[in-house]
Design a protein around this nucleic acid. Structure first.
Lengths: 230, 230
DNA sequence: CAGTATCCTATCCGATACTG
DNA sequence: CAGTATCGGATAGGATACTG
């Protein structure tokens, strides 16, 4: 009988029974990063089937880690929110992420490029502060990708709203960024920098916005952690 | 195809691919607690089949987390030791254990009683310091258990050696402890104390050793973490 | 002591399509 | 939008016995 428990009273074992099932840690990361709606979660774990996502959310609910609420005055819309027990998983997910950033070889991570995921994360962490105090539109283009995933727009509306579009929003573009997905991902992960990769990045448009790119690009939460793998 | 990767460059996902497979977290706890030999590891994860243990150790080796050494001058004896990457997993395992101690209901943990595991852990964490400065022998008895698992002996030899026996070592006994496994486990986990459970524990022998039981019993590494489940 | 070898199956999971 | 329904298949892993 695969997947009985570990039969250990140890808290590590008990917790691992809940936390260390396939996809769970990744889903928790997504919840902790702030996604609450089913389809937002799907975006964050695109390779997970909706059936399994649904299943895992139920498991987490049964474990007291998330709760499902209907949004007030919106019939049929739901939110998954972390309970205090769920919030308290933040140190766990952080520890896992820090270890991954330190010890997993970049080559391996960079085998899993995914523009939707990257852009979704960039949207989440983008820092509007260095940008002009007006609506700013940045177009990112990865020429090597098929048309449907090639071009993306980030709309930044002061003071803090950031939107991601995969269709031309029609506004004037402040900055055109053209590069390859691997370079952009490596920068976002903190493995390199805009400056170091300047030969691989083409920036056209507002000089100030271009110059502050490394700043407004909010990097991965783990970007500051240096690689330790020998 | 079950069990491909998550296809995410995120360090949490990359790390989870390595760390969140079945048994791995529990095995890591055992390695971090200090077990190095194959059969010691088996003792720490008794419900894991040797085949799978062997498999996981190979996986961990491939991931750069453990290394296998032949013990010098002892042909055929091996040790599994954590690499720096493995040592750096300590914060991960700690975070998982702390969360488990805080949020997993005691009832659930205490469904997984196991005298061998408990005694093995008691041996590891026992604190000889409050004991007399001579060889001290403590007999633990769980009358409800079958004979083969009923009686255990802890041999403490100053300054720091602690042995566990499951056959009468023959020495004079300083303290006879008789209780039930659930009570002893709950105490060891920090869920209650020797004093609170005094009605369920029978202590016969050296008064001083009996009185300092709560002290020399080295508790679980997570015992200090208070339950938070509502 | 330190593992292999073998067998077998329960179950997890991926894929796809569909619904209120 | 927020999930369910259904299906098949791979495989992880449990049980047990055995070996140098």
């Amino acid at each position: 009988m695969p997947h009985a428990g570990f039969k250990q009273f140890c808290p590590v074992a008990m917790a691992a029974e809940i936390l260390c099932t396939r996809w769970t840690m990744v889903l928790l990361r997504e919840l902790i990063a702030g996604s609450t709606r089913f389809n937002d979660l799907r975006r964050g774990v695109p390779k997970m089937s909706p059936t399994l996502l649904s299943q895992r959310l139920k498991d987490l609910e049964a474990a007291g880690i998330v709760r499902r609420y209907e949004i007030p005055r919106k019939k049929g819309l739901y939110e998954y929110r972390l309970t205090p027990a769920g919030e308290d998983l933040r140190p766990v997910v952080e520890a896992v992420g820090i270890w991954g950033q330190r010890w997993v070889e970049s080559q391996l991570s960079l085998k899993n490029l995914d523009p939707s995921l990257l852009m979704w994360d960039m949207r989440r962490n983008l820092n509007p502060q260095p940008l002009p105090n007006r609506r700013t539109v940045i177009q990112l283009m990865y020429p090597e990708l098929p048309v449907s995933k090639r071009t993306w727009w980030l709309l930044v509306d002061p003071p803090g709203s950031v939107d991601l579009c995969w269709d031309d929003p029609g506004f004037d573009i402040d900055l055109f960024v053209t590069t390859d997905l691997r370079t952009m991902t490596a920068i976002w992960m903190g493995l390199t920098s805009v400056e170091k990769e300047s030969s691989k990045i083409d920036l056209v448009g507002d000089k100030a916005v271009a110059r502050s790119m490394q700043q407004w690009l909010g990097l991965s939460p783990f970007a500051a952690e240096a690689k330790r793998v020998p």
